[in-house]
Simulated scan of single mutants.
Amino acid sequence: MIEKRHTVRKYLDKPLDMDLIGLLNDCIEQINKLYDLTFKLVTNNSDGLSSLARLMSNNSVQNYIILAGKDSSDLDEKIGYCGADLILYAQGLGLNTWWCGGMFNGKNALKHLDDKTVRVNGVIAIGYGKTQGVPHKSKRPDQISHYQGKAPDWFKSGIKALLLAPSALNRQPYIVDGVGNKVSFKVKNGAFSQVDLGIGKYFFELGADKSNFEWEDTL
């Protein structure tokens, strides 16, 4: 599923199947309960996207997921981690997604939420893509990672998966170090860096299998 997922910015004029809406809402409800977040699927609307995002999509986006939660020191990392889970779940349902990065309208998105005190920090466009997208230009494993000694297969698999992850501004700002079964993970400072941290951790865990390693404190 990781290999099949690519960013898609243009969508068919086709409403989401009601069964898929139900599955997405169930998944979002579980995420919200488990991580104390306020994600929400908005259908037949694109007001949470910025004017630039709508222009880039030729006004073809009809649905999006609001990424929001109560403000806290780890909110952005949770948004990234759980948003990553959602885009892969959507891919498995035959849908396509676009993590809009900085191109969202938080004020408009907030109108769709009951709790107006939460912070919105992103939206994910979702629908039936006109194409399945194409792989993005990727860095090499040695540009983002280092393992002390001979890298085990699980570490290599984690890095491979990480390089297939979206990043909020498409910069792959990751720095991953491993020694034994300990892995430290950090991102270069910048806009949405903590969102990228969450996205990256999710993809690395998926590739490496969490049973093979332990996270060290982020440097």
Score class of each variant (00 low, 15 high):
residue 121 N to Q: 09
residue 160 K to L: 11
residue 73 S to N: 13
residue 86 L to D: 08
residue 146 H to C: 13
residue 80 G to Q: 03
residue 91 Q to L: 04
residue 75 L to Y: 06
residue 80 G to Y: 04
residue 114 D to S: 15
residue 143 Q to W: 04
residue 110 L to R: 02
residue 122 G to L: 02
residue 131 T to V: 11
residue 157 S to A: 15
residue 79 I to V: 11
residue 147 Y to I: 09
residue 103 M to Y: 10
residue 162 L to N: 09
residue 114 D to M: 12
residue 149 G to R: 05
residue 159 I to G: 02
residue 96 N to H: 09
residue 97 T to S: 07
residue 142 D to T: 14
residue 143 Q to R: 11
residue 147 Y to A: 07
residue 128 Y to Q: 06
residue 108 N to P: 15
residue 98 W to E: 10
residue 89 Y to Q: 10
residue 92 G to I: 00
residue 106 G to R: 03
residue 107 K to A: 14
residue 161 A to T: 06
residue 78 K to E: 14
residue 77 E to A: 06
residue 163 L to W: 04
residue 82 C to T: 10
residue 133 G to K: 00
residue 110 L to E: 07
residue 82 C to H: 04
residue 110 L to D: 09
residue 168 A to W: 10
residue 87 I to H: 00
residue 119 R to S: 12
residue 90 A to I: 01
residue 126 I to P: 03
residue 137 K to C: 07
residue 74 D to L: 10
residue 124 I to Q: 00
residue 82 C to A: 07
residue 143 Q to L: 05
residue 151 A to F: 07
residue 157 S to P: 09
residue 128 Y to I: 11
residue 130 K to C: 11
residue 153 D to K: 08
residue 153 D to T: 12
residue 128 Y to D: 11
residue 93 L to M: 04
residue 148 Q to I: 15
residue 140 R to I: 07
residue 119 R to G: 14
residue 87 I to F: 07
residue 135 P to V: 12
residue 167 S to D: 11
residue 127 G to N: 06
residue 153 D to A: 12
residue 114 D to K: 09
residue 89 Y to A: 09
residue 160 K to W: 08
residue 157 S to K: 07
residue 118 V to S: 08
residue 131 T to L: 06
residue 137 K to P: 15
residue 146 H to E: 12
residue 141 P to Y: 00
residue 111 K to W: 12
residue 123 V to P: 01
residue 119 R to I: 14
residue 106 G to I: 05
residue 90 A to Y: 01
residue 159 I to R: 00
residue 148 Q to S: 13
residue 152 P to M: 02
residue 109 A to I: 06
residue 93 L to H: 01
residue 95 L to W: 01
residue 164 L to H: 12
residue 95 L to D: 04
residue 104 F to A: 00
residue 168 A to H: 08
residue 148 Q to T: 15
residue 89 Y to S: 12
residue 101 G to M: 01
residue 85 D to R: 12
residue 167 S to F: 09
residue 168 A to F: 12
residue 135 P to K: 05
residue 140 R to K: 13
residue 117 T to Y: 10
residue 168 A to N: 08
residue 114 D to R: 06
residue 79 I to G: 00
residue 94 G to W: 01
residue 127 G to H: 03
residue 130 K to D: 10
residue 161 A to W: 01
residue 76 D to N: 13
residue 98 W to V: 14
residue 86 L to W: 05
residue 129 G to K: 04
residue 158 G to H: 01
residue 146 H to P: 06
residue 134 V to L: 14
residue 132 Q to N: 15
residue 153 D to Y: 06
residue 138 S to G: 15
residue 135 P to E: 05
residue 155 F to W: 05
